[in-house]
Amino acid sequence: MSRALPAIELIDVGFAYPDGRIALRGINLTVGEGETLVIVGPNGAGKSTLLLALNGLNAPRGTLKIAGSIVADDNLAEIRRAVGVVFQDPDDQLFMPTVFDDVAFGPLNMGLDEHEIRHAVEDALGLVGLAGFQGRLSHHLSFGEKKLVSMASVLAMNPKVLVMDEPTANLDPRARRHLLSILKELPQTKVISTHDMNAAYVLADRVAVIYQSELVAIGPPSAILTDEPRLLEYGLEMPTNLERGK
């Protein structure tokens, strides 16, 4: 894993809502290229705010660099091309009537021609194991399928960084395993927020803990996710497969 040019760099990033409530405070963080960083933390800790900031969807204080370039208003198009976000609720992400239109939405905005778009859609659906789903209607898909199509809709833009909010939430065990195996295969730099400690343990190169708007711990899963007293202090828990092994 080359750490020459970090894929993501956050320097003293903070964010406060218009009502003054603080969501993030003094976050310093570097994610290497190809690395998978899993962010854990209780509800309302600021995880989602951080993820949105990576795509320029909110304007935090401090410096945020994607592949070396600082996120600012004038390069948002570039940033959004480099960073793909898969939102938690696939019904928010799949807003076009058909699967094809949805997966093609990003590539179309990128200005690809029709031939390239068809290819991008085909490839992206193939990556998530839904080849041939182009003509299906989004609202007729099962929840697991919707989640996969959401991923495809982002993968079709061929992003360098994949940002996912709670990818395994509400999935049944089979769909969850399928999704995890796909995630493990994808070569992109990944930033994933989750409450699923088992998934965190399986996916992460490093785990970051966000607690009360601050980054309180970061390190390899074998160090962070085995420290039960600290996890409990942060309102988290150990992965169950580790607990059982105790």
Binding site: L52, N55, L57, A77, R80, R81, G84, V85, F87, D89, D91, D92, Q93, F95, M96, D101, A104, F105, G106, L108, N109, M110, E114, I117, S153, V154, M157
Partner: peptide, 22 residues
């Protein structure tokens, strides 16, 4: 609120004012 989230999802995928469809 869903409308807001959908709009964010659109922006995240490079939406800039007019949706194209082939």
């Amino acid at each position: 609120e869903r409308g807001e989230r959908i709009y964010q999802a659109m922006l995240a995928r490079g939406y800039h004012g007019h949706a194209h469809t082939p």
